[in-house]
Simulated scan of single mutants.
Amino acid sequence: MSGLQQAKSEETRRKVLEAACEAIETGGLAAVNIRNIAKEAGYSIGSVYKHFKDVDELIIAVNTLTFSKMKDRMAEAFEAEDDPLDRLQALARTYYRFSRENTKLWLTLFGHRLPEDYPTPEEHVQANVDLLSFVGRALQGLHPELEGEELTVRVKTCFAAVHGIVALSYERRFVSLSDEVLERELEFAVARLVA
């Protein structure tokens, strides 16, 4: 493939991904339809399928971009603090704020299910690992004795606790809590979890 062809191919992929992101931001996961996305991107359905073998691959690509955006925000939160507990609490607040500012993309991360025989692309797995590494680094700052499998399990537990509170807030389980109060409760939960 020549340099010009490669550039055109990358541009097509980028525009299709942008159209898919916009569809999700507007209508959620249910809005992902290859025909409509092709139309919005200005390409044929065949052009979309040249870059994404099916709708699942397209959603995974969108989710990987969402992970990347979240990672950038988490990196900023992590670097803004020196104390490990402050870092963990900042990561929890940032996760909550990201979910509020990018609700439909965030919901798509957890709402999309791949068929059982569909392998998760390594890039997507690595994006998840990269995101959780911030929690791991902060936890090790608090508890240097944590390592290996024990650290991995604790990272997953911390993430699950924060994610659970955030997810329940969307189900209106914390409907009476303002954003400010919910953020304080996240900080409280994190502090108790890692004490």
Score class of each variant (00 low, 15 high):
Arg173Gln: 13
Arg184Tyr: 04
Glu11Gly: 11
Arg113Val: 01
Cys158Ile: 09
Phe98Cys: 04
Val155Gly: 13
Pro121Gly: 02
Glu147Thr: 15
Phe67Gln: 05
Ala61His: 05
Gly46Val: 08
Asn33Cys: 07
Ala80Pro: 13
Glu123Thr: 06
Ala90His: 13
Pro144Arg: 08
Ala75Gln: 12
Phe67Ser: 02
Cys158Lys: 07
Leu182Cys: 15
Arg100Cys: 07
Leu193Met: 11
Leu17Pro: 14
Leu139Ala: 09
Glu171Tyr: 14
Lys39Leu: 11
Glu40Met: 03
Ala61Asp: 06
Glu18Ile: 10
Pro144Leu: 08
Glu101Pro: 02
Gly164Pro: 03
Ala167Cys: 02
Ala31Asp: 08
Glu101Asp: 03
Arg137Glu: 07
His163Asn: 03
Met70Tyr: 07
Glu76Met: 00
Phe134Ala: 11
Glu101Met: 00
Lys39Cys: 07
Leu105Phe: 09
Lys50Val: 10
Phe159Cys: 00
Phe134Trp: 11
Arg192Thr: 12
Ala23Tyr: 12
Tyr170Gly: 15
Thr66Pro: 01
Ile59Asn: 07
Asp130Ser: 02
Ala167Lys: 08
Ala41Trp: 00
Asp117Gln: 15
Gly148Glu: 07
Val16Gly: 05
Thr66His: 02
Gly148Ala: 09
Gly42Asn: 04
Val155Glu: 14
Glu22Ile: 08
Phe78His: 12
Glu149Met: 02
Lys53Ile: 11
Leu139Asn: 08
Met74Cys: 03
Phe110Thr: 04
Gly28His: 06
Lys39Glu: 15
Thr152Gln: 08
Val129Glu: 08
Asp179Asn: 11
Arg13Asp: 01
Glu123Ala: 06
Arg93Gln: 01
Leu139Glu: 06
Ala20Pro: 08
Met70Cys: 03
Val175Phe: 14
Ala20Phe: 06
Asp56Met: 05
Pro115Asp: 00
Ala20Cys: 03
Ala19Thr: 12
Glu57Phe: 04
Ala41Cys: 01
Phe98Asn: 03
Leu29Arg: 13
Ala20Glu: 08
Ala7Leu: 13
Asp82Lys: 11
Ile34Thr: 10
Glu185Gln: 15
Ala189Val: 15
Thr103Glu: 15
Arg14Asn: 10
Ser99Ala: 14
Asp56Trp: 05
Gln6His: 09
Asp86Trp: 05
Glu81Asn: 10
Leu29Asn: 11
Thr94Pro: 02
Glu11Lys: 13
Ser2Met: 00
Leu58Gly: 04
His143Gln: 10
Glu81Leu: 06
Glu57Ser: 07
Asp179Gln: 09
Met70Gln: 10
Ala61Met: 06
Val125Leu: 14
Glu185Ser: 08
Arg97Cys: 00
Val16Thr: 04
Ser2His: 01
Gln126Phe: 02
